[in-house]
Design a protein around this nucleic acid. Structure first.
Lengths: 339, 339
DNA sequence: TTGTAGGCGTTATCAT
DNA sequence: ATGATAACGCCTACAA
């Protein structure tokens, strides 16, 4: 590691004090233009650049935003891109850590970022995370924290999320409108708020349409294609088997689709299928899969804006919750009436 | 932002000097066990944590690795996951910046990370990047730099990459073995090393099999499904139209597939298709798409290991180039002989 | 207009 | 066993 040029290097070379150098470099008002010129010339000649670490130590801020996500799949990567967009614009650099859906990794990441490194946090919890002490610790240390996507239920903090209930409603109502009556749900793990909300939308919509709810039609499993495949196989071998499946993610929809095809059933006639996230893949498989879209890029941008607002603001935004609306994209897998 | 507890806070409260406190906290040998106990108790009670910024300023290292990638699509996200894995293990935190395939963004990211923030760089250049001054600047400042995936041709630095020529060979030979004779290539932009290498493998294999090369069958276009779609439409309306297409990425294969289907041609009989990357989607579309796999996770791990080696080592590794081998996955889209 | 001194939080070195 | 001091690189009073 080469020694970087420092203020005092310049000072020595020009027989000036470091403060004078500093002033010249920062366009301070009261410096001799001649001195200033000399300093600027030497500085650019030697490629002087201020040491951000020293500045951060002084100003107690790093201009780094820490982002913790469970993984970098399509949706989260898109959200991160949105965060990046806004952060860069505002002069912040983004540090992305993946927890790999592991609670332990999330803890490590949090504490690493927390150690005076980042100015604020944007977090989407892992599916394994059931305790929020690490997030509370962020708050105890008075670092701004914004939750997005997968929220930590019960934690008071500014939040940005999709209206997951509405997503659940949208999907369910669509299936009902298409004439499906026995609608199964492949949900995520039971502690996962985002999954439960989508499920709530489902239940609500059944009730509204006076369809009896059958608890055997709800399966909780990992956010994972393989589990979804297995779960669907089981569902399809039940006596009162479903005539439609709503999966809480597109990955799971793919798993379900494989099981359905294997069983020799055809979509949308024998069975309807709708996913969630509107990943590009839904358009490309055969049959194409209906899905609920969340505005992922926008959601990331909003989260970053909110965090920056919190960081700049004295006002208490801890009860602010920004909710974005989902959209439905009807495709072949559930379009029984060929609308 | 609350004031964090500092060493001198503890010192004042216990009527000790900061050096003593520091020693106790770091398990130094010669401290009075009683003092030590007192200090540790108070420290944990007040949740004292050392200020990493101050440490970094002192030690001239941040334990942060900066990663610059063009985007976070499947392959790159997987590579980043590999980097993350190794880095975390070695006590480093990873800072991921996306250039969004923009040269300008890449410049900004580089200089931000460069400002004394990160201990080393792992970079995959954007498809727009044709000049490497920003990377040379990293080297001028004597920060370790490892290139991976998309290398900067001509820049001397430790590199980790896929054997792209072998990938091109593998794909081409497979198509030839299947009986295809007029093999088109959808390549990336002309300056992109990774694309050119795959193309080299193609050319080499044609020659080896004594197949005449037709330059009209090579199309350079953006790494992008839509462009690939359009390019394929053109290819298919040529007089001497191809009987197989090798696309340099799977995304492009998808675009090609859409154009092929639209034209009413069937794979693999009317036309063969093979992609590159072995993205999950290749297995899921109909017909499933043959593809060349690169060991993305492994490649990320190797890149991180190499960087750490460079950072710890005085030896000059700037000529080291680690090459990983691709594998072919034959699927329906090109399996004419039903092997 | 320029210089001096002190501080940001830590550690290493040298004294005590 | 503990304390004082200097140093990392910068900035902001305050002094000259």
């Amino acid at each position: 590691m080469d020694k970087q040029i420092t203020l005092s290097d310049l000072a020595k070379m020009l027989n000036l004090s470091t403060s004078t150098i500093s002033r010249c470099l920062r366009n301070a008002p009261d410096v001799n233009p001649i001195t200033k010129k000399k300093v600027l010339e030497l500085a650019s000649e030697l490629n002087y650049e201020p040491n951000k670490l020293a500045l951060s130590l002084l100003n107690k801020q790093t201009n780094i935003i820490g982002v913790i996500v469970a993984n970098l799949d399509y949706v989260l990567a898109t959200m991160v891109k949105g965060i990046d967009e806004v952060a860069l614009e505002a002069g912040y650099t983004v540090m992305v850590c993946q927890s790999n859906e592991s609670y332990g990794r999330e803890l490590v990441n949090t504490s690493r970022l927390l150690d005076s490194l980042v100015d604020g946090f944007i977090v989407s919890v892992s599916s394994e995370t059931k305790m929020y002490d690490h997030l509370k610790k962020i708050q105890t240390k008075n670092k701004p924290l914004v939750l997005f996507d997968r929220l930590a239920a019960g934690l008071i903090a500014p939040k940005v999320r999709l209206d997951n209930i509405a997503g659940g409603r949208l999907a369910t109502q669509h299936l009902i409108d298409q004439g499906y009556k026995k609608i199964a749900v492949l949900a995520g793990q039971e502690n996962l708020d985002i999954s439960n909300k989508r499920l709530d939308g489902y239940l609500e919509t059944l009730k509204k349409n006076k369809i009896k709810f059958d608890k055997d039609l709800i399966v909780h499993c990992d956010f994972n294609q393989d589990y979804a495949y297995l779960a669907t196989k089981e569902l399809l071998s039940m006596k009162k088997k479903p005539d439609a499946i709503f999966t809480i993610t597109d990955r799971m929809a793919i798993g379900a689709m494989l099981a359905i095809k294997e069983k020799g059933l055809s979509m949308p006639d024998d069975i309807g299928l709708i996913g969630f996230n509107n990943e590009p893949i839904t358009k490309l498989v055969t049959p194409s899969i209906s899905s609920i879209e969340q505005p992922a890029f926008e959601l990331g941008k909003v989260a970053a804006k909110l965090l920056i607002e919190v960081m700049n603001n004295e006002a208490d935004l801890s009860n602010r919750e920004i909710v974005l609306e989902p959209k439905i994209f009807v495709r072949e897998s559930s379009n029984k009436r060929r609308i």
